[in-house]
Amino acid sequence: MLPLERQKKILDLLMIKNVLKLPELTAELDISIDTLRRDLNTLTSQGKIEKIYGGVKLVQAKFGESSMDERMIKQLEEKENIARKCSQLISDGDCIYLDSGSTTYHIAKYVKHKKLLTVVTNSIPIVQELMDSSVELIIIGGKIRHHEQSVIAYDYLFNFQGLNIQKAFICCSGITIDRGISDYNLEEAVTRKKIVEQAGQVYVAADSSKFGKDVTISIAPLERVDAIITDHHVNAELVHKFKKLRTNLVIAE
């Protein structure tokens, strides 16, 4: 197992059990204590874990938006399922927008072999994922947001009006029936608002933990969203409520 794979496995284990002893980790990963210490030193220097007496624990995320790296490893199976379902809505020849986010990143992995596909994005990881594919890539211009690995758009650098985006797949941090979709960061929200206004169809890719949250900045009301693609852990009562709305709730099994 490569160091990056081991380090990801360590973080996955800590997501399940917040504190782990060193003997538990060496047994689970089948590695020596010296190899484990090197991996733990790397993760500690990245600010992802904290060493405690005889073991390690996850660094608690600050209130609000967690980092892209943290979100990449949370609810991974659910996000993969959501991404796979989203990819089924994308056809050869489409011009789509893939938002910066851990769930939309996974969509990129499933559309690499689509023919004559154009992807507009503000996500650096998505650009990297599609770089060696035949997909036509357009990245918006603006300021790099290091924490999110995204580009925050500026009107004088990018002309949204010139785009013919047929389908937009965006992320958010909160979803409520009354208030719609919302996010923590103003600049990210501004970019998403522009895309929502511009796109022919708007899809929100969001795991079930986002429902019931109305966070800092409003992006759009639900009536502007064609569908929300989420995982099977979504509340059954909420599923029933969505049946009365224009916005479709699609469950990715």
Rank of each mutant, 00 (worst) to 15 (best):
M1S: 14
L2T: 14
E5I: 13
L11C: 04
V19I: 15
P23I: 11
E24N: 07
E24V: 03
A27V: 12
D30Y: 07
D30G: 13
S32A: 10
I33D: 14
D34R: 13
R37P: 01
L40P: 03
L40G: 05
I49N: 01
I49W: 01
K51V: 04
K51T: 08
G55D: 08
K57A: 09
L58I: 12
L58Y: 04
R71H: 06
M72K: 12
I73W: 01
K74I: 13
E78S: 08
E78M: 04
C86I: 05
C86E: 01
Q88G: 12
S91R: 14
D92G: 10
D94F: 07
C95D: 05
I96C: 00
L98C: 08
K109M: 09
V111G: 00
H113F: 10
K114R: 15
K114A: 03
K114N: 07
K115I: 10
L116C: 10
V120G: 00
N122S: 13
P125Q: 08
I126D: 00
S133C: 05
V135F: 01
L137G: 00
A153V: 12
A153T: 11
Y154K: 14
L157Y: 13
F158G: 00
Q161A: 13
G162D: 12
K167L: 03
A168Q: 01
S173V: 01
R179D: 14
G180P: 02
S182W: 02
S182M: 06
L186C: 03
E187K: 11
T191M: 10
K193Y: 10
K193P: 03
K194E: 12
V202I: 15
Y203H: 06
V204Y: 02
V204G: 02
K210A: 09
T216L: 15
A220T: 11
L222Q: 10
A227T: 06
A227D: 09
T230H: 06
D231E: 09
H233Q: 15
H233Y: 13
N235D: 15
N235Y: 13
E237Y: 13
K243I: 08
V250C: 09
I251S: 07
A252G: 05
